[in-house]
C-alpha cells in the first residue's frame, strides 16, 4: 500500500531529515502530509473540564451549567468541517480503513494520559451488525483495553446528532456493567475513550457506571470536541 488511506493519492515515501535525526524506527505511515494537517488539533487554550478549544483556559459555559459531578475530558481535535467529513466517511459510510488516520495520533495521546484501565465506549448489537466494527476500538492498535461496559440495544437508534441539546441531556442511562467489571475496576483509575464529545451526557452516564463498579477515578479522552 503506497497510497494515502484518506485521499487516495500516492505517498511520496520520502524520508525527512528530522525522521533520520530521531534515529528511532521509521514509522510506516498510511496518511499523506496534506491529510495529516487536515484536522485541527486542540491547543493548550481549552476548557479544563471538557477539552473544548477556546481563546482562554477558563471553564466553558456548558461546563458551568452542568450541575452534577464534573468529568475531566481531554480531546484531540476540533469537531470542525474536516472532522465531520472524516466521521461521515469512517462511521456512517463505514470506511473502516480510515481508522488508520487516527491510530498514531491516538497512540501518542494515550501515552500522555495517566490511567490504569482503558474502557472504550461500546456500540450496541444492531450497530455492530450493520457497521461491522466499533469505531472507537478501531483506533486502538496494541493498547490493552477492557470492555467493562455493555450498552442496551436501541441506544443509538436515533443518532445523537439528530437530537437537540435538551433531548440529548434527557437521555436515559444506556450502559450497564459487564459481568466481571467489578473485579477489573476496583480501586483503578479508568480512562474512558469515545469518538466525539458533544454534550458529555454519554460519557457521564458511562462514568457513573464505572464509579458504581468501584473505580477510584474516571477521566475521559475523545478524538473530537
Amino acid at each position: 500500500m503506497n497510497a494515502c488511506v484518506w485521499c487516495g493519492r500516492r505517498l511520496s515515501g520520502v524520508v525527512t531529515v528530522s525522521q533520520l535525526w530521531r534515529w528511532g524506527p521509521l514509522v510506516k505511515t498510511d496518511v499523506c502530509q496534506d491529510c495529516q494537517t487536515r484536522l485541527t488539533p486542540i491547543s493548550s487554550q481549552h476548557c479544563p473540564q471538557c477539552g473544548r478549544q477556546q481563546t482562554d483556559e477558563t471553564v466553558c459555559h456548558d461546563c458551568q451549567r452542568w450541575a452534577g459531578q464534573p468529568l475531566v475530558n481531554h480531546a484531540l481535535y476540533v469537531y470542525d468541517a474536516a472532522m465531520k467529513a472524516y466521521m461521515q466517511q469512517y462511521k456512517f459510510q463505514g470506511d473502516y480503513a480510515l481508522r488508520r488516520v487516527l491510530q498514531e495520533p491516538l497512540r501518542l495521546a494515550l501515552a500522555r494520559e495517566s490511567y490504569d484501565i482503558l474502557v472504550p465506549i461500546p456500540v450496541d448489537q444492531a450497530t455492530w451488525q450493520q457497521r461491522g466494527f466499533n469505531q472507537v476500538t478501531g483506533w486502538l492498535q496494541t493498547q490493552p483495553f477492557q470492555q467493562a461496559l455493555l450498552v442496551q440495544a436501541t441506544h443509538k437508534d436515533q443518532p445523537q446528532s439528530a437530537k437537540d441539546r435538551a433531548a440529548r441531556l434527557r437521555t436515559q442511562q444506556p450502559f450497564t456493567l459487564a459481568l466481571n467489571a467489578a473485579d477489573i475496576l476496583r480501586d483503578q483509575r479508568v480512562l474512558l475513550l469515545d469518538d466525539v464529545y458533544t454534550t458529555g451526557r454519554t460519557l457521564r452516564h458511562a462514568a457513573e457506571q464505572i464509579y458504581l463498579g468501584g473505580a477510584k477515578a474516571v477521566t475521559s479522552l475523545t478524538l473530537a470536541r
Binding site: 459510510q93 463505514g94 457497521r131 461491522g132 466499533n134
Partner: peptide, 19 residues
C-alpha cells in the same frame, strides 16, 4: 486490508453509493 472487524470484506471504491 479491506476487511471489517466482523471479518466481512468491503469495497472502498464505490462507498458513496452505499457500502
Amino acid at each position: 486490508q479491506d476487511q471489517l472487524a466482523n471479518q466481512a470484506w468491503y469495497c472502498r471504491q464505490c462507498l458513496q453509493l452505499g457500502r
